[in-house]
Simulated assay, not measured.
Amino acid sequence: MLAISCKKDNESNNLTPTLQIPIVSTFELGDITQTAATCGGDVTSQGTSAVTVRGVCWSMLQNPTTSDSHSNDGSGTGSFTSKLTGLIPNTSYYVRAYATNSEGTAYGSMVSFSTLESGTIPSISTDSVTNVAETTALCGGNITSDGGAEIIESGVCWDTLTNPTVYNAKTIDGTSIGSFLSYINGLLDSTQYFVRAYATNSCGTGYGSTMSFTTLAAKPPTIDFISEPGFVSNDITLAPGSVIKIGVIASSNGSSSNKLVRFRIVRIFNNVPVTQADSAFTSNTFNFQFTTSAQSVIGSELWLFTITDTAGKSSEISLIITTGKAGLIGKSINNFQVKQMKYE
């Protein structure tokens, strides 16, 4: 006996789909105060149905759910920001992002944070700026109240823009109530700065009033002739064929970080300048010695010696060499010979 059974195609393919809840991640906490904080999350998949509500939930116990305190931050997929309010100061909390669809509620990973201590930010005043130099100055402040919480850090902060903060250049000068002195360094010369004192506790950072000052112009490098025996260091009159020795010594400005970078000698005869030496280097001091002789010269020559530092500031000295006897017009002191060049 043969039995044959028939079944409609749509009945054979009647499979029940798998139901899925959303996928959501939790952001890190930010903007934490005594009673509030900011968090959020990102719904990367809605699951098998649309996300109808999303947000974060929090509790003083681990693994909070929507039965605990929670926010409602819209619907659908994507990132969102949540505000946690009504918190207790100096208390630890646990937070998870959540997303709900018709199949259920999904939670992101759990993060924790602590609210700030109750109190206020410190009260502080800014002292006057004194002892202003090319790259340094003195300032300070006076912490009159810690705001009810321990001082974590204090000092002064500065910038070339008004109202500097602790995210700009700053000093760190202690954790006690009262006055403190701050040494400001690393400044640029001939520059206006704004400075104010600060003090930080667990509630935040308090600032004093803003003061302004302008650093002094950096002094140029120094240069002079070597005046030891055997060296010419002043204007001189020579007989033709005379041999002389000239030496120059230079140094950078000790109150700044600028270094010497260039030395030049220019000889001017009959209003025509001729470069005799042009040296590039980097040092704090420089010593240059040479000899030259007069060969049937008539008239005078002007010798210019110039030293330049990294700030582009230059100093110059000069020497006039004159022949005292008529000779062949147009000849000049041209036997230039470097004897020593030294820098450190």
Rank of each mutant, 00 (worst) to 15 (best):
231 F>V: 12
121 I>A: 13
214 T>P: 13
72 N>F: 06
336 F>L: 10
118 S>E: 13
213 F>L: 04
287 N>Y: 10
44 T>H: 15
320 I>M: 03
204 G>R: 07
50 A>N: 15
76 G>H: 08
137 A>T: 01
274 V>E: 10
330 G>S: 02
187 L>M: 15
184 I>F: 03
14 N>R: 11
142 N>V: 02
249 I>V: 13
7 K>H: 12
27 F>R: 11
7 K>Q: 12
166 V>M: 12
241 G>Q: 05
325 K>Y: 07
255 S>M: 08
322 T>K: 06
99 A>P: 10
168 N>M: 09
273 P>R: 04
319 L>K: 05
342 K>R: 14
243 V>Q: 14
198 Y>F: 14
80 F>N: 00
306 T>H: 02
84 L>S: 04
95 V>E: 01
222 T>R: 06
37 A>Y: 00
93 Y>Q: 03
14 N>F: 09
41 G>S: 14
3 A>Q: 15
217 A>C: 15
222 T>W: 04
273 P>L: 06
72 N>V: 07
187 L>K: 02
126 T>F: 02
48 T>V: 11
167 Y>F: 12
123 S>H: 11
206 G>V: 03
69 S>T: 07
271 N>M: 08
114 S>K: 13
6 C>W: 08
224 D>N: 15
210 T>K: 03
197 A>Y: 04
193 Y>K: 05
32 I>N: 01
18 T>L: 12
109 S>Y: 09
338 V>D: 00
92 S>F: 03
